[in-house]
């Protein structure tokens, strides 16, 4: 029945699905599986915070890039505002992942 479009198929994968996948794969409790997903994310985050790049073979690599200060503009008012130097995280997908995605979604490598 039409319900105003509020209900849609939610196909977003979240922590819950990652924990469930670990739970199904390894003989651990659901709680422990969730904790381990958290530990993995924390270790990756900690390495990046230390300034290390994180390379996961056949998936991709995460690295931290230092950005210099530049002048930005408030798009609403047009005012010039300095954008302070900051660190940004970049993800570079591996060729394997890119090829898998393209084969499946566009039918070409």
């Amino acid at each position: 029945m039409w319900d105003g479009g509020l209900v849609m198929v939610d196909s977003t994968v979240t922590r819950a699905q990652l924990s469930e996948a670990v739970y199904n794969e390894v003989g651990l409790s659901r709680n422990e599986s969730a904790d381990l997903v958290e530990s993995v994310l924390n270790e990756v985050g900690a390495a990046l915070t230390r300034g290390e790049a994180v390379k996961i073979s056949s998936f991709g690599s995460f690295s931290v890039r230092q950005k210099g200060e530049r002048i930005g503009r408030n798009p609403k008012t047009g005012d010039e505002v300095p954008i302070l130097p900051r660190k940004v995280l970049v993800f570079r997908p591996s060729h394997i992942l890119k090829n898998r995605i393209n084969q499946s979604l566009t039918g070409s490598p």
Binding site: V13, Q17, A21, V22, E25, V26, L36, V37, V40, I56
Partner: peptide, 9 residues
């Protein structure tokens, strides 16, 4: 565990 997480993503 590590492989499963990245494989799931």
């Amino acid at each position: 565990i590590v492989s499963t997480i990245f494989e799931e993503i």
